[in-house]
Design a protein around this nucleic acid. Structure first.
Lengths: 352, 352
DNA sequence: GTTAGCACTCGAGGAGGTTGAGTGCTAACA
DNA sequence: TGTTAGCACTCAACCTCCTCGAGTGCTAAC
């Protein structure tokens, strides 16, 4: 891959992303000053096609970048100066984060919306894993003779609760004792740390005395593990699904159907967003075929992790057509990701 | 509108719903035994067109029912025997409701899914208004010196809570007193009944003594009214949006965009579903243009109310193309609505 | 290694023709 | 007066044929 080939590939991609139509050798010779004739460019393009970086939609058309071509571009060709946001965009982001909500849930919602409206693609965000939340408060409240309400407040400000039935009367003193023991053992720990044995041990001596509490404990354990596994508690946020319909590549209803049904499957979205953050590789770009296991091979995705209190984290990202202005989108995702981290008191982490 | 015209209109609609293509005079003469020649049917159809019940997509095509035609059909032509569900369908519904969840939220979700999968259209449901929920329990729990947790449990089993800051220490005795007074005044009332004056009066003598509680009360009032107005607390359920994409009438991406953006607006959906139940007219059918204020003039909608404990209620319904088998869909919606009512201990109400 | 020139390919788009479903009209019939 | 047969007419859908133009690949010359 010599320098000139790189230049030509770069030119093909820039032009295609811009105009949306296959780009020919003449166009490149005219628009980008490479100092060679169309014929030479043709030869080079023929090589590039053989190498799999570009392809022809049909025999007498210009060239279009392949997924591999975009990949090479993102990995090797993108120039830092392309990644800058315009002043207005900078401003827009800054303004937004100055005035945005402090409450976590809302901040996420709104950031997601911002990202989708600024890119005109679909934005998505996974909230921090509930398992990483730290138990800050734990209360047992008597509702009546047979019912207790367990209240847990986690450090993200969320209140979780569950009504539990107790088989027989439980004196106030015992209840207080139970609460105290559990508080001592559970508070300050993340839900991930709350293991079966921990709960069991915490209540051992109580259980010995009062077998009737066993049910309550089973319920409590269920509750804790339920939250820890975060089954349905942590749906990813998705904003601007409809933006994708604006894209010419999704003018075919069948493609749209496939794509949307993938988007409706929360697990797919979460998996995608988390694939990136779990590798801890900063911003990650998935291109075309790399999303085919998720049924989105017509798309590309840019995700970046964000941090809450320096540790716990989630991811925010954008889904658009493979033909997207990668540098801009990457810059925007990183910028917004960093701002979210900042707002949440985490350390930002940018770049690749 | 003589008998023969009715028969012909009926035939046009049945055939069009079935086949999906404009239907001509010859087809009707052959398929439906009206005892007259195509020529006669042509004359009648010409009249029907003049009356606005059918129309021609283009000059040399067959006829297609207009919105007005469907309306007339639904109001006057549908025969009771058309409204029967097949045995398998009956069975499917019965099976489902035998095994379905008892928990309200889940029951709604699952019923909605059932309706959408059985019709292959989009199903939607508004949950009962929160304002109609009755406060069953009310608790004030001290979290620490400066924070109280207000817990409200409504008769639908939902737990609502809010953390409130109190300016200065509040002795346990006062807290208990406060709780007791509020319980006395608020329990057993629906959120709709909880008025500003009620809360104020309930706490009057307390406030006189302890001005510092004012803030707490303001917060509590806010909380109550927040739930009562049910701002974001009561999103309608929507299932099977993607089913609409299967319909040939939505093969155009622009129509889809318009429709989906309407569906994304919760208020529009809720308004639609509630329009019916507020009139207390049983099952209601909206056809084509009648939905144009909601930006869904390509669709028809069938909704029916359901009842919880005989009074409080919501609606369940189906959104599909105007070309839908109305009798079947109506029967299905009513059946499922009735089952939901039954499950929720409400009285069923069928028919129009 | 680069370039100019040229033949070739192929999709897009328009013109023209054919087909078939369906209508509207008219005149004849009961 | 209502019904029917017959016939001319209309029009979308579908072909085919044609041209145009963008773009390529190849070759021979520089």
């Amino acid at each position: 891959m010599d320098e000139r080939k790189k230049q030509i590939l770069h030119a093909v991609i820039r032009d295609y992303v811009d105009v949306g139509e296959p780009v020919g050798s003449r166009t490149i010779a005219k628009k980008y000053d490479l100092g060679v004739s169309p014929a030479t460019i043709r030869n080079e393009m023929s090589d590039l096609e053989e190498m799999g970086f570009i392809r022809q939609p049909h025999a007498s058309a210009g060239r279009v970048p392949s997924d591999k071509g975009y990949r090479y571009y993102v990995d090797n060709l993108m120039e830092p100066e392309e990644k800058l946001l315009s002043d207005e965009e900078q401003q827009q982001v800054a303004d937004f984060f100055q005035n945005c909500a402090a409450e976590m849930e809302q901040l996420f919602q709104q950031s997601c919306r911002l990202l989708s409206s600024m890119t005109n693609y679909t934005a998505m965000l996974v909230k921090p894993r509930l398992a990483d939340s730290v138990l800050e408060r734990f209360k047992l409240v008597r509702l009546n003779e047979n019912q207790l309400l367990a209240i847990m407040i986690t450090d993200d400000g969320k209140i979780h609760n569950k009504i539990m039935n107790v088989a027989a009367a439980l004196p106030d003193a015992k209840l207080a004792e139970l609460e105290a023991v559990l508080q001592e053992r559970l508070l300050g720990r993340s839900l991930a740390d709350v293991t079966d044995s921990l709960v069991a041990e915490a209540a051992k001596h109580l259980l010995e005395q009062q077998n009737l509490l066993r049910q309550t404990f089973d319920l409590l354990r269920e509750l804790l593990f339920d939250y820890r596994d975060e089954g349905s508690h942590n749906k990813p946020l998705i904003q601007g699904t409809l933006n994708l319909l604006k894209q010419p590549e999704f003018h075919d209803v069948d493609t749209v159907r496939e794509l949307f049904s993938a988007l409706e499957t929360d697990d797919v979205v979460k998996e995608l967003l988390l694939m990136a953050s779990e590798k801890r590789r900063g911003t990650v770009v998935y291109i075309g075929d790399e999303l085919s296991p998720q049924g989105m091979s017509a798309c590309s995705m840019v995700t970046t992790p964000y941090y809450v209190n320096g540790e716990k984290m989630g991811s925010i990202g954008v889904l658009g057509p493979t033909r997207m202005p990668y540098p801009k989108v990457i810059a925007l995702v990183e910028q917004i990701g960093a701002e979210v981290s900042r707002k949440m008191g985490g350390k930002a982490e940018g770049g690749q």
